[in-house]
Amino acid sequence: MAVRGWSQRYMVQAASTEYLGVVLMLALAFFSWIGPTLYAHDALAIHAHHILSAPDTRFPLGTDALGRDVLARLMRGGQATLAIAFWASALGLFAGLMYGMVAGLGPAWIDRVLMRLLDALLAIPTLVLMIFFAAIMPLDKIGLATLLGLVSWPGIARLARNETLAARDRDYVRAARQVGAGHFYIAHTHILRAMLPLVIVNATFLMADMILGLSGLSFLGLGIQPPHASWGGLLNTGAGLAVIGSWWLIVFPGLAIFLAILAMNMLGQGLLARLNGEASP
């Protein structure tokens, strides 16, 4: 009984981290998509008499240099940031899984070639690759999601390859092969299922990276371009003005990015701790 009491307490603690992450992410999504329908101001409407006004009852988070409402822009920016980060993660996840499973299931020489190539790719940090490609071609939102997805898969690919190698030597997979199951069938029914938990954990961390990467890119002026709002972009345009007193232009977008990344990291950490069968920190 004492033992069960302990483990129950651990479960609650382990659970709280990831639940908090999910709740936080849902709150941010609600804020971004449902928020605009409940909120009076429009993200693009210019209030010429209220340029750079500090937060008050009319503009809860103040206005920017053009007299646009910061809260409304934050909501719009959330849509762009979260949607692009989500689709980029999905794309990266898919590409990484495919690459990793081909390497893991294919003949040895394919594995070696693909893994060396992966090493070379992994040598260039994701953000640097993003900057490089964002610099050489102007990108819209779909283009950005594609770019982020296409530069972010190597980590997932390595994981998928290692898990595939581990799974394909398990007895039930060998048995399936013995009775004549094809590559695709095995990959889909056995291997994918075996590595799914670990993949999900890493997908949440990937999403955190994507939010950071996209915001960083937009902050550098290479991501989502004005007049479209994004959290990183808001921070970019606000940085210069904040120094002369308009602190609200950076504090709120910065907090939004921070909370979104925090949510995904907490979710990932909580799931990881649960996967490893231990309490979260």
Partner: peptide
Amino acid sequence: GAWQILGYSLPTFFVGTVLILVFAA
């Protein structure tokens, strides 16, 4: 442990901007 999650969830460009705001401006 809690500090660590917060620490690596904070984007450097946000932290940097806030530091400039506080310590420089």
